[in-house]
């Protein structure tokens, strides 16, 4: 009897949660309470003003598609901005990403490069757009530049992370033949990271279409300009039409890009 191992010696209850977990939850709720005031939370106003809200919502319907040609043209411009912003960013993110990778670059290269990319990423596209408008004037080109800089920062980080996760053995196989450092990267590293790089680039293209649709609000071209005008003019039926066009376009692009991703990898 005593020699048979018994399950009764092991408790059926999971061990009690430690003090750490309790403390973490406490801190979390404290932060929520502390943020309540700063965020000016007034949930009851939603109920109190619900009649106003209903009147406001009714003004959006039916959507007014009379100017659909202009909306569509501007939506296409928005996609063009996203295309160029993304492509330029990919071109720059390849060297910047390789130089930010711990396993390829020495510390005195990858540390400054990473900080530079952090800076590109930290500042929102809208801010960059406002700055570039000063430099190159109102219009889509400022939007392209804004997306370019911000997306370079994002993609370089993602590209570098993919490079840091590669299998080093094929690279050593290439090195063993007397190849130089660039050849090691081209033949040993890039083939391994390419599927991920393609995936990240397409994903960023999708989110750049979404970003580009609001860049117009600060004057950087595209559908955002129209959106800004109709909202400012209280033309809510037209606003609804513009929003529908944005939603449909973004959904289509997401679907197409998901297909491309499947096919490319």
């Amino acid at each position: 009897m005593a020699t048979v191992p018994s399950v009764q010696e092991v408790s059926l209850r999971p061990p009690p949660a430690g003090i750490g977990a309790t403390l973490a939850w406490g801190v979390f709720f404290l932060v929520l309470i502390w943020s309540w005031q700063g965020a000016d939370m007034r949930p009851f106003d939603l109920l109190k003003d619900s009649d106003n809200m209903r009147v406001f919502a009714r003004e959006f319907f039916p959507p007014d598609f009379h100017e659909w040609r202009i909306y569509l043209e501007e939506m296409v411009v928005t996609v063009h901005i996203a295309i160029w912003g993304t492509v330029l960013a990919i071109v720059c993110a390849i060297p910047c990403g390789l130089m930010s990778a711990e396993n390829l670059a020495p510390v005195w290269v990858y540390q400054p490069m990473r900080r530079l990319m952090d800076a590109c990423r930290a500042i929102n596209e809208m801010v960059f757009a406002m700055l570039f408008i000063v430099a190159v004037g109102l219009g889509p080109f400022a939007g392209v530049l804004a997306l370019w800089v911000h997306t370079t920062g994002v993609l370089a980080k993602l590209f570098a992370e993919a490079v840091e996760a590669i299998d080093p053995r094929p690279v050593e196989g290439v090195r063993a033949t007397g190849a130089n450092a660039l050849e090691e990267i081209l033949y040993g590293v890039i083939p391994q990271v390419l599927p991920l790089w393609i995936s990240y680039s397409l994903y960023r293209f999708e989110s750049n279409v979404r970003s580009a649709s609001v860049l117009g609000i600060v004057g950087a071209g595209g559908i955002g300009v129209v959106l800004h005008e109709v909202i400012r003019g209280f033309e809510y039926a037209q606003t609804a039409a513009v929003l529908i066009i944005i939603i449909v376009s973004v959904t289509l692009i997401d679907l197409v890009s998901a297909r491309i991703r499947q096919w490319a990898i």
Binding site: P170, G173, V174, A176, Y187, G188, P191, P195
Partner: peptide, 23 residues
């Protein structure tokens, strides 16, 4: 020659062989 072959999986076999000419 390595225990784990150390070929680049996603490249064609012939390109893996051509790597021997890189120098």
């Amino acid at each position: 020659v390595f225990q784990q072959f150390n070929l680049v999986n996603r490249l064609p076999v012939v390109t893996n062989v051509l790597v021997g000419l890189l120098y």
